[in-house]
Design a protein around this nucleic acid. Structure first.
Lengths: 219, 219
DNA sequence: CAAGGCGGTTTCGTCAGACGATCTTGTCAG
DNA sequence: CTGACAAGATCGTCTGACGAAACCGCCTTG
């Protein structure tokens, strides 16, 4: 029946399918894995020294996150976005990032300390290697400030990192817009923060049509 | 030497973890399952006549959808939202539904036929039983008109249905706002459609604080 | 020589059983 | 009544197995 509610998660060692999921995400950021790549279960079993159940569970999770697509009896592939799909992802990203920025600014207005966000953003600016890590920290600081658990859950499901992996060096830089976003949050100005989020994403959408076909899956 | 043959699966069953996922979602809408309820693997195995791998995969999927929370060594529960979590969910829902409405209206402006949406909305109005089905059809018509695959993927991950299951009869009706939304989409008016979506969700958020504590998980 | 069908091989979907680790619960001593 | 311990239940992961579906190469046929 209706029992107690989830209690705080014990500090467990990151064992299990997590390792695979984590490594694949990291490998995607580092270029060791590429969108479109096939992921065969036997291969992953030997590569990570895991049982099939474990590999399978990891793939299921990745599929649920949208990183991986599974076709019946044809295995799993790292999702390769079509131009349209990329546009759709970004269109969805804009309002969600906007909401995060808005709620973060509201939190600051309510007395929260934006120090962590400022620091993470500066680290991101100055990071030369391990930029993926710095970026992750920046986004975590933003969502943690926003304090919306649902956003925490959904934002990783947006395959912005997929787009990043797919476009690699063909993206316009977004540093200025991000700095504007952080400044608005620190100034506790929700409307400006939300607008900055949109301004951060919009150029990416606008840049898509000009990119070469070779970067995308056929429609 | 190894015991029984692995059950020749009846061709009638749609087969797979889908059955469990689907039935749990439906059962949630029908009240057979309640938020907060524990879902033990052995129980599900016998209840659905499935192997553990299959049950496990279904639970993983449900967890990724946010319907279920899994705690290490403590099993899976149907997520029971706290008042704050419910508010967070709705805050996220608003811009996403807004985007769906906007893109649907844009599609109509570009020549798409809104007939299916109109019909689904009317069915939803007049449905007395099987309202869950009618609602699902309505949302599908909306997102299909919007034509954004990413929205299709994310909207089911919003636990609006969880909120629905949790609040049951304590929700204010949203019929008027929905009709306004549909009208704006049919009129190919994106701004009005998006605003109607917000107007649809906002009363729900506003109603939350007045609801009794007993409906929510403790913070 | 090209097209198409056939069988073998690979991989997937699902199941069964097992083992250690961990959580829950019931009981008992203080 | 509280705290501690033992028993039981459950979970995480592994191994092994089997049918089914998809893929691939070969061979036949027109």
């Amino acid at each position: 029946m209706i029992t107690d509610t989830p209690r705080p998660r014990a500090p467990t060692t990151p064992s299990g399918p997590d390792t695979l999921v984590r490594d694949l995400l990291q490998g995607l950021a580092e270029g060791r894995y590429a969108p479109g790549q096939r992921l065969a279960e036997p291969d992953l079993m030997t590569r990570y020294r895991l049982g099939r159940s474990t590999v399978r569970e990891a793939l299921t999770r990745l599929a649920a996150m949208g990183i991986v697509t599974q076709l019946p009896h044809r295995g799993a592939h790292i999702r390769l976005l079509s131009r349209r799909a990329a546009r759709d992802v970004l269109r969805v990203t804009a309002p969600l990032l906007g909401l995060a920025a808005r709620q973060a600014a509201e939190a600051v207005a309510a007395g929260a300390d934006p120090q962590a966000l400022r620091a993470a953003s500066q680290d991101y600016d100055s990071a030369v290697e391990n930029r993926a890590r710095a970026r992750a920290r920046y986004y975590r600081a933003l969502t943690s400030l926003a304090g919306n658990a649902e956003l925490d859950r959904l934002l990783p499901m947006l395959q912005v990192h997929l787009i990043r992996a797919q476009l690699r060096d063909n993206r316009p830089p977004g540093r200025g817009a991000r700095q504007a976003l952080v400044a608005a949050v620190i100034n506790a100005d929700p409307d400006t923060a939300e607008a900055a989020a949109h301004a951060h994403i919009q150029p990416l959408i606008a840049a898509l049509p000009a990119l070469p076909d070779s970067l995308f899956a056929p429609e």
